[in-house]
Amino acid sequence: NITNLCPFDEVFNATRFASVYAWNRKRISNCVADYSVLYNLAPFFTFKCYGVSPTKLNDLCFTNVYADSFVIRGDEVRQIAPGQTGNIADYNYKLPDDFTGCVIAWNSNKLDSKVSGNYNYLYRLFRKSNLKPFERDISTEIYQAGNKPCNGVAGFNCYFPLRSYSFRPTYGVGHQPYRVVVLSFELLHAPATVCGPKKST
């Protein structure tokens, strides 16, 4: 009989979030998941669920729940959905087409922007091929755009693959930082360890 609440607040209220290319994953298990708490945590810009209804979450049980978190800019949030393409979905964080879970995003301009520009958040701009779903690539190998090998040196047709967002508070919403948490629900042929409040007794 599990009584402890799932530590969603640790994920959502973390002081620092990860850069999207090096997104963070927390496995959540053996706890009571009260998803209604999430609705009250922040004024969400996005709370979209796929393959599951957000209002039914509190009635369900899962084997595992994974919470992935990272920062992107406002106009990239739409890429965090099944079947999307674009720089983020292709080279940084890719959801599977049959994704079961929820994408939660909110504006973090007050936390993640600086007047002089916050350069701490990076994204991958160049990659030889698209990522597979939930693949994480943290390599910093020089990207070869031409025929000549780069031998690890940046220059003509040889690019450092990561680029930094420079978040400034005066930017338009599309270029402001957004914190994203992706909850993916895993149903294996194994005992369910993460249940809503109704199912945990």
Score class of each variant (00 low, 15 high):
residue 154 A to V: 13
residue 63 T to F: 07
residue 19 S to T: 03
residue 81 A to I: 01
residue 100 T to C: 13
residue 196 G to V: 10
residue 181 V to P: 00
residue 118 N to S: 14
residue 72 I to P: 01
residue 31 C to H: 04
residue 163 R to K: 15
residue 36 S to H: 08
residue 138 I to F: 06
residue 154 A to G: 11
residue 166 S to F: 07
residue 50 Y to T: 02
residue 47 F to S: 07
residue 125 L to M: 14
residue 178 Y to Q: 05
residue 14 A to D: 07
residue 112 D to N: 03
residue 42 A to F: 10
residue 81 A to K: 05
residue 90 D to K: 10
residue 103 V to A: 00
residue 16 R to T: 14
residue 128 K to F: 07
residue 105 A to Q: 03
residue 107 N to M: 04
residue 62 F to R: 06
residue 146 G to S: 12
residue 54 P to M: 14
residue 175 H to R: 13
residue 47 F to D: 00
residue 69 S to L: 02
residue 9 D to E: 13
residue 38 L to T: 03
residue 195 C to K: 06
residue 166 S to R: 13
residue 74 G to K: 07
residue 61 C to H: 09
residue 167 F to Y: 05
residue 111 L to C: 08
residue 33 A to V: 15
residue 177 P to W: 04
residue 75 D to F: 05
residue 28 I to H: 02
residue 119 Y to M: 13
residue 39 Y to V: 12
residue 141 E to K: 11
residue 198 K to C: 11
residue 5 L to F: 11
residue 159 Y to P: 08
residue 1 N to A: 07
residue 32 V to F: 09
residue 101 G to E: 00
residue 121 Y to N: 05
residue 122 L to M: 15
residue 167 F to A: 06
residue 114 K to H: 13
residue 8 F to Q: 03
residue 112 D to T: 02
residue 188 L to S: 15
residue 66 Y to F: 11
residue 118 N to C: 06
residue 85 T to R: 14
residue 86 G to V: 06
residue 153 V to L: 11
residue 170 T to Q: 13
residue 154 A to K: 13
residue 134 F to Y: 15
residue 156 F to P: 15
residue 193 T to G: 11
residue 29 S to I: 07
residue 86 G to W: 04
residue 97 D to A: 10
residue 2 I to C: 09
residue 164 S to H: 12
residue 184 S to Q: 10
residue 149 P to D: 13
residue 156 F to D: 15
residue 63 T to V: 09
residue 45 F to T: 15
residue 38 L to V: 10
residue 56 K to A: 11
residue 87 N to W: 08
residue 163 R to S: 11
residue 130 N to Q: 13
residue 36 S to W: 04
residue 159 Y to C: 11
residue 103 V to C: 04
residue 1 N to R: 08
residue 121 Y to Q: 06
residue 155 G to M: 07
residue 174 G to E: 14
residue 197 P to T: 15
residue 186 E to F: 00
residue 10 E to D: 10
residue 4 N to S: 12
residue 71 V to A: 02
residue 73 R to K: 11
residue 99 F to G: 00
residue 148 K to R: 11
residue 30 N to T: 04
residue 186 E to I: 00
residue 139 S to V: 03
residue 57 L to F: 08
residue 78 R to E: 14
residue 53 S to G: 09
residue 184 S to M: 08
residue 96 P to N: 03
residue 195 C to P: 08
residue 175 H to S: 15
residue 19 S to R: 01
residue 196 G to K: 09
residue 115 V to C: 08
residue 12 F to E: 02
residue 56 K to C: 07
residue 62 F to G: 08
residue 98 D to E: 09
residue 186 E to Q: 10
residue 16 R to A: 11
residue 79 Q to S: 03
residue 113 S to V: 07
residue 186 E to H: 09
residue 164 S to A: 13
residue 163 R to V: 11
residue 92 N to F: 02
residue 157 N to C: 08
residue 73 R to S: 10
residue 197 P to L: 15
residue 65 V to R: 04
residue 88 I to W: 01
residue 48 K to V: 07
residue 37 V to S: 14
residue 29 S to D: 09
residue 28 I to L: 14
residue 187 L to S: 13
residue 38 L to I: 14
residue 59 D to R: 10
residue 118 N to Q: 12
residue 108 S to V: 05
residue 171 Y to G: 15
residue 156 F to I: 14
residue 174 G to S: 14
residue 133 P to C: 04
residue 168 R to S: 13
residue 70 F to N: 01
residue 7 P to K: 13
residue 89 A to F: 01
residue 96 P to E: 00
residue 191 P to D: 14
residue 129 S to D: 14
residue 6 C to F: 05
residue 143 Y to I: 10
residue 50 Y to Q: 01
residue 149 P to W: 06
residue 167 F to Q: 06
residue 22 A to N: 14
residue 104 I to H: 00
residue 12 F to R: 02
residue 63 T to S: 14
residue 142 I to E: 07
residue 185 F to G: 06
residue 136 R to I: 04
residue 170 T to L: 09
residue 198 K to R: 14
residue 181 V to Y: 03
residue 91 Y to G: 03
residue 44 F to I: 13
residue 182 V to S: 00
residue 78 R to K: 15
residue 151 N to I: 08
residue 138 I to A: 10
residue 47 F to V: 15
residue 133 P to E: 06
residue 91 Y to Q: 05
residue 158 C to G: 04
residue 29 S to A: 10
residue 22 A to Y: 07
residue 151 N to W: 09
residue 161 P to F: 01
residue 132 K to I: 07
residue 148 K to Y: 11
residue 94 K to V: 00
residue 55 T to A: 14
residue 10 E to V: 07
residue 58 N to P: 15
residue 4 N to T: 12
residue 64 N to R: 10
residue 127 R to F: 03
residue 19 S to E: 04
residue 153 V to S: 15
residue 34 D to G: 05
residue 50 Y to C: 01
residue 83 G to I: 03
residue 31 C to W: 04
residue 24 N to E: 14
residue 74 G to T: 01
residue 21 Y to C: 01
residue 66 Y to H: 07
residue 68 D to I: 01
residue 3 T to Y: 07
residue 79 Q to T: 03
residue 7 P to R: 12
residue 47 F to M: 15
residue 67 A to I: 09
residue 148 K to Q: 14
residue 22 A to K: 10
residue 117 G to P: 07
residue 177 P to T: 03
residue 114 K to G: 14
residue 105 A to I: 06
residue 39 Y to S: 14
residue 152 G to K: 10
residue 73 R to C: 05
residue 179 R to M: 05
residue 103 V to K: 00
residue 89 A to I: 02
residue 145 A to C: 08
residue 108 S to Y: 03
residue 6 C to T: 04
residue 178 Y to F: 13
residue 148 K to F: 10
residue 120 N to H: 12
residue 111 L to G: 06
residue 145 A to K: 11
residue 67 A to H: 01
residue 137 D to A: 02
residue 55 T to L: 13
residue 72 I to T: 01
residue 157 N to F: 08
residue 78 R to A: 14
residue 41 L to M: 14
residue 185 F to I: 06
residue 140 T to V: 10
residue 195 C to T: 08
residue 76 E to S: 02
residue 23 W to M: 04
residue 95 L to M: 07
residue 123 Y to Q: 06
residue 153 V to N: 14
residue 106 W to S: 01
residue 116 S to E: 14
residue 80 I to G: 02
residue 96 P to S: 06
residue 45 F to G: 15
residue 45 F to Y: 15
residue 145 A to D: 11
residue 121 Y to C: 05
residue 40 N to M: 08
residue 118 N to L: 05
residue 95 L to E: 00
residue 32 V to W: 09
residue 145 A to R: 10
residue 93 Y to F: 04
residue 33 A to H: 06
residue 96 P to A: 05
residue 58 N to C: 07
residue 133 P to R: 01
residue 55 T to R: 12
residue 171 Y to K: 15
residue 162 L to T: 05
residue 148 K to C: 08
residue 84 Q to C: 06
residue 186 E to C: 05
residue 112 D to Q: 02
residue 130 N to D: 10
residue 171 Y to S: 15
residue 86 G to M: 04
residue 165 Y to L: 04
residue 172 G to M: 12
residue 194 V to M: 10
residue 56 K to G: 11
residue 74 G to L: 02
residue 121 Y to S: 04
residue 148 K to A: 13
residue 143 Y to P: 06
residue 192 A to D: 13
residue 15 T to D: 11
residue 28 I to D: 01
residue 82 P to A: 01
residue 166 S to D: 12
residue 200 S to P: 13
residue 101 G to T: 00
residue 62 F to P: 08
residue 36 S to T: 12
residue 172 G to C: 08
residue 160 F to N: 14
residue 167 F to H: 05
residue 192 A to S: 13
residue 160 F to L: 11
residue 48 K to D: 08
residue 27 R to L: 10
residue 100 T to I: 13
residue 42 A to S: 08
residue 127 R to P: 03
residue 177 P to L: 05
residue 101 G to K: 00
residue 19 S to Q: 04
residue 137 D to F: 00
residue 69 S to I: 02
residue 108 S to E: 06
residue 179 R to P: 03
residue 118 N to A: 09
residue 199 K to G: 15
residue 16 R to K: 14
residue 113 S to L: 06
residue 113 S to G: 12
residue 130 N to W: 05
residue 175 H to I: 06
residue 91 Y to L: 07
residue 107 N to F: 03
residue 103 V to E: 00
residue 133 P to H: 02
residue 107 N to V: 04
residue 80 I to L: 06
residue 172 G to R: 14
residue 53 S to E: 14
